[in-house]
């Protein structure tokens, strides 16, 4: 922190500029410059900073406060201390939505190796149609998640869905993917992986292309084929990118909402889905409590729990990275 802080390093760097003279008296310039630069600095960050403070930082503190209160149906709240947190610990819906969210997050990580493989394939020299492939993979990324979820809800339909029609061609009688407790979470995760694949693919493609060609040339001289090159060069050198993607992907998965809200149903209708207990997520529970049953204080406690989990899992990933991430 101190090394980048203006005060200490300032004079040394500022010293490089003033020698070239100007209209102002030399002696006072560095100090005045410094003050003026600092003022400009504050002025530059002020608009974004104030906005973030009002709409993001302050709300975090307020949510923290809300988590110790109880709300009436039409507003107004009273301090109830740790009640909401006690309730968190014994609420079966919290437990199962947590388990579902973590399972979904773990399943979502499958997308990373998939994206690496496709990125490596797309990066093959002289491959035709890379532009077309890239576009197709990217299409789900730009499509509205609500629309994606609707389309998949239809595809997954037990009687009339395309998925089961295709399975029927090979003699398989497919389940009701999103209404069957045994398949719903997997079906959901598959859509998550499908729609995020293009995003990860692009990031890995950029990572692969940053790997110097010489490495591959040298490996080729040693007689290594494409597969060995992939494992010996691409994979290790891509590990920092993979680390970044996994951090982002975990944070994203833990906040899953849109897909479940549309795919599995919301509110009372959602609760009539037999698979509901197996797909309910933490953020969905938050939404239900905050905006359906108006348990705002309890909802605040639920997201505080989510914050703790996100910070913990991210910290864990940073600790684990030494084991598998190679920084060139």
């Amino acid at each position: 922190m101190t090394s980048t802080d203006g005060q200490e390093s300032g004079p040394r760097r500022a010293g490089s500029a003033p020698a070239s003279g100007g209209t102002r008296p030399g002696g006072r310039r560095p100090r005045r410059d410094r003050v003026s630069e600092a003022l400009w600095g504050y002025a530059f960050i002020a608009p974004a900073g104030l906005g973030l403070a009002v709409f993001h930082l302050w709300p975090v503190l307020q949510t923290g406060y809300f988590s110790f209160t109880q709300w009436g149906v039409f507003g107004g709240h009273t301090w109830t201390g740790l009640d909401n947190y006690h309730r968190l610990l014994t609420d079966p819906e919290v437990a199962r939505s947590l388990v579902n969210t973590l399972a979904y997050t773990a399943l979502g990580l499958v997308g990373i190796p998939l994206a690496i493989v496709f990125a490596a394939l797309l990066n093959r020299e002289g491959l035709r149609g890379t532009g077309v492939y890239r576009t197709l993979f990217f299409l789900p990324v730009v499509t509205m998640p609500v629309a994606v979820a609707m389309v998949w809800r239809w595809l997954y339909n037990g009687e009339y869905g395309l998925v089961n029609h295709v399975l029927a061609l090979v003699g398989i009688d497919g389940p009701h993917w999103i209404a069957d407790p045994d398949t719903a979470l997997f079906a959901l995760a598959a859509v998550g992986v499908w729609s995020g694949l293009g995003y990860n693919l692009i990031i890995f493609l950029a990572g692969i292309q940053a790997i110097p060609k010489e490495f591959y040339d040298a490996a080729a001289i040693d007689g290594a084929g494409p597969v060995r090159q992939f494992f010996r060069i691409t994979l290790p050198l891509l590990s920092p990118t993979a680390f970044f993607v996994s951090v982002i992907s975990v944070i994203g998965s833990l906040q899953l909402f849109d897909l479940v809200y549309v795919l599995a149903g919301s509110g009372l209708t959602g609760r009539a889905n037999p698979a509901f207990p197996r797909i309910q997520t933490v953020v969905q529970l938050f939404y239900d409590r905050a905006f359906l049953t108006d348990d705002r204080g309890y909802a605040a406690a639920i997201v505080m729990m989510l914050l703790v989990i996100i910070v913990a899992l991210t910290a864990l990933q940073f600790r684990m990275q030494k084991r598998w991430v190679h920084y060139g």
């Binding site: 504050y42 906040q255 953020v283 997201v303």
Partner: peptide, 26 residues
Amino acid sequence: LRFPGRSVLFGLFLSVLMVPPQLFVL
């Protein structure tokens, strides 16, 4: 630009990045 507290302020900006957006909603 160099100004006192730059790192701290940047840290605050970054911390917003870590927080799930649902925390802001209420």
